[in-house]
Design a protein around this nucleic acid. Structure first.
Lengths: 228, 228
DNA sequence: CTTGACACAGAACAGGCGTTCGGTTATTAT
DNA sequence: ATAATAACCGAACGCCTGTTCTGTGTCAAG
């Protein structure tokens, strides 16, 4: 009868190594060397670390590029995905003008508080990340766009739109900012609310209607409970 | 009078190196060595690569850990944020039962197609990532929760809820799945739609009402235009 | 008891890799 | 013209790092 020494699957040292590699990677943004793994996990011999790494690789927990220094990486979902940091330029509400992306301003140094991190895999493939910015919805005026107070809308800078795209527009007629689906018809422009139970608004082609951007994504964080 | 040879700031080689390091990092999940940078950017001497890396470091574009192999990392917002891969278990629609997170099943090998990557910074601080899963909304039945066809709802496994939290429940009375704000009142349970113009539903405390999870986040991708 | 798999240690080797230094070329200021 | 400087190249030095080999103790099966 076959019996296994300690636990099947991941033993204590396996887990320790896995955790350390993950933490090290997060902190330094490059993988640890075999010797560093050994030191921090209480393994005195590099060959033993190598021994465990081999096993972890066979289990599919990590990937290794042999011969390459620090060629260890944790496989699968724990691995960090490729993200984009998108600056939050300001609020969007019915009564206030829309903030705009200023190409002359560098948002590179924006800290986390004024930006959102979005995985590239969630964005349309073609988006390189330039021209993207985010706005925070204030108030309930976007409810007809199925967008709530506190939602974050990720926008792509644009001054024109194709039919069926959701755009952020400044309606100087009503002195109002809004998010609507855009349709150019024969002699007018139709702005269609996302909520199918609501009626569209129509604008003459000659009327001033400033498209500020296209909506790429909406994020709603349900952080705190509704107080009703 | 002082004049600079080529362009001020980033020259062609600076940019080339920066781009390469970024791309390499993305692909291999560990940084390139000086020699690899040189080969791919057409620089034949390691000392020249070092020369440029020094400059990029002074400009604040990269950070280096000298003496450590592959100790280069791109600074600032281009750096990948810490993300969580959350499995998409299946659809959520009015008429079909809710998929559930099975603790016995490992979602570790889920590929990108069946999962979404979410930056930790977007989630409540306490979320470690266990017990999180996502559902894809099918149909318009969640409109009263301000949630559209195609939206992705990120959920946390739960069988109870506190007042004001949005929950996914299976209403066996109506044979229906729904997303509503949860309120426990004196002798009944109130399920409140997110859309303030809509009326709540009431349930006796004795009635079976299966809470399947709390809604943590809603993501709406505006990939393709509305066809209306 | 013997065998063999397993978990581990230590040392040595070879190639990887960052650093440094001497040297060359071209541009610019004086 | 000349000196200074930025932009390179090539080679050598030496630590860093993954690999490999020998050896040791433990535990379970035969």
């Amino acid at each position: 009868m076959m019996m296994v020494r300690k636990s099947k699957g991941l033993g204590e040292r396996h887990q320790k190594i896995l955790d350390f590699v993950l933490a090290y990677q997060r902190e330094n943004r490059y993988p640890p060397s075999i010797r560093e793994i050994g030191e921090k996990t209480g393994i005195t011999s590099t060959s033993v670390v190598n021994y465990y790494l081999d096993q972890l690789e066979k289990m599919g927990k990590i990937e290794r590029d042999r011969k390459i220094s620090r060629g260890v990486r944790v496989a699968g979902p724990n691995a960090s995905a490729d993200t984009l940091r998108i600056p939050i330029l300001g609020p969007i509400a019915a009564g206030i003008p829309l903030p705009e992306l200023d190409p002359n301003v560098s948002y590179l140094n924006d800290n986390e508080a004024n930006a959102v991190d979005i995985a590239r895999s969630l964005l349309p493939a073609k988006e390189k990340g330039d021209n993207l910015y985010a706005l925070e919805v204030k108030g309930d005026s976007m409810i007809d766009a199925m967008i709530n107070d506190g939602d974050i809308v990720v926008m792509k800078q644009a001054s024109e739109a194709r039919n069926g795209e959701m755009v952020a527009v400044w309606l100087s007629r009503d002195n109002e900012a809004t998010l609507k689906y855009f349709f150019k018809e024969k002699d007018r422009i139709r702005l269609q609310p996302a909520n199918p139970t609501m009626k569209p608004q129509y604008y003459k082609k000659t009327e001033p209607l400033e498209i500020k951007g296209k909506v790429v994504m909406v994020i709603r964080k349900m952080d705190r409970p509704l107080a009703v």
